[in-house]
Amino acid sequence: MELTTFVRGIISLLVVLGFAPLFAGLVNKLKAIFTGRLGAPVLQPYSDLKRLFRKETINANSSSFISVISPTINLVAVVIAAAMLPIGFERPLISFEGDIILFAYILGLARFFQILAAMDIGSSFEGMGASREAAFAVFAEPIFFFTLGSIAFISGLTSIYEIYHSIRLDNVTYIVFIIVCSISVFILAVTECSRMPVDDPKTHLELTMIHEVMILDNSGVDLFLYQYSSHIKLFIYAILETSFFYPFGIRSYTVAIVIFVVVITALSISLAIVETITSRFKMKSIPHYLLFATAIGILNLLIYTFTV
């Protein structure tokens, strides 16, 4: 790997890490506006993180070392996943044949430890969240393979960077395919990042939460790490979504930045709209929702395979 590529990869990664909370803030702000509130400033997530960083850490007395290392592993895993994403047309820091699998599985590692950490407390609230997380994640992974994976299978490429580069927006069927794929990714993002309608990040009722309830007993730096990694995760999915619409043929920074900003904004708007107009599903019907998304994926795939 050449040094410049490496440096550029690092820069891409830093962009992701830096802008992740901003995206969350943007979504929250938009959502507030849509609901007629003023809302917190866009940069509020940064302040929140800063506040958490300085707080005292409290661990539950029944917890073990899992609670201690889990936030760390979570962050590292998410960051490594982020390092595989192409920002613009740059080759990401980690890019090799088959990194799409690593991408999925490394997020799985993060989830594994998050669930363990939740169960570590020995409280039924965290257990509830962990159970739900485990159940929904089971369905989320197939969606991933039906969307990004399907492009990989069709193009025969196994590196995320190359997969995105293979997207050609000059074929009508392909465009339809990509659009439906992006819908799937959107659903995936909603699930994985615990947004509405799967989960309500702003609720205050423990019984109805998924992600938030899992970190109920974390505070201070631990909570900081969790929150930060969940911001990054949301941003990762945002980038996955963005990259569908990215004309990789054009290698110009200006265009890249403009498109990036535009698409990200559009995405945050749509996310905010969805969060505004829908209410949270019943827990029991979430698997159906996910299966629905899977079905879309299969249908999409069938259309593509038999028309192109």
Binding site: F53, R54, K55, E56, T57, I58, N59, A60, N61, S62, S63, I121, G122, S123, F125, L216, D217, G220, V221
Partner: peptide, 10 residues
């Protein structure tokens, strides 16, 4: 910033 142990949230 400190660290302590406490009963879990119930």
């Amino acid at each position: 910033y400190g660290k302590r142990i406490s009963a879990p949230w119930g």
